[in-house]
């Protein structure tokens, strides 16, 4: 009976932890998405000082979030985000408006797509 109790407790801890991770992914994904949206707005207005500060803010936030995402998501996706953000910074330095906008939209798609893919849904299970 004690073994069953311990197993149920462990299962509850696991489920609670997994739900917390899922929520955290959605929350941090939204924060990153908002930051990317700021970059997109600035890129549309070709306001380079604002673009630079928005990209830097996005990069810093990603640096704090990345270790957590590394634990719970697929590593190739983290590499994709790093690639996109590196290109975003390079285009900001080069002041390439169109390319920067394209990369920002790609980053936004990744930040929406990954938490959605990790969500506990029937479509993701099957």
């Amino acid at each position: 009976m004690r073994t069953v109790g311990v197993l149920i407790l462990l299962a509850l801890i696991f489920i609670t932890g997994a739900l917390w991770v899922e929520r955290d992914l959605v929350r941090t994904g939204k924060q990153l998405e908002t930051d990317v949206q700021a970059v997109i707005e600035a890129a549309k207005g070709e306001d380079w000082p604002r673009i630079r500060s928005s990209v830097e803010r996005l990069w810093q936030r990603w640096r704090t979030i990345e270790p957590r995402w590394n634990l719970f998501t697929e590593h190739p996706e983290i590499d994709d985000i790093n690639d996109v953000l590196s290109r975003l910074r390079a285009y900001t330095e080069a002041q390439e408006g169109a390319a920067l906008l394209a990369e920002a939209l790609a980053a936004q798609r990744l930040f929406i797509h990954i938490p959605r893919k990790e969500a506990f849904r029937l479509s993701n299970i099957l």
Partner: peptide, 10 residues
């Protein structure tokens, strides 16, 4: 994590 747990159970 829950997805993998559910797949494993199925």
């Amino acid at each position: 994590m829950l997805i993998i747990a559910a797949r494993t159970l199925i």
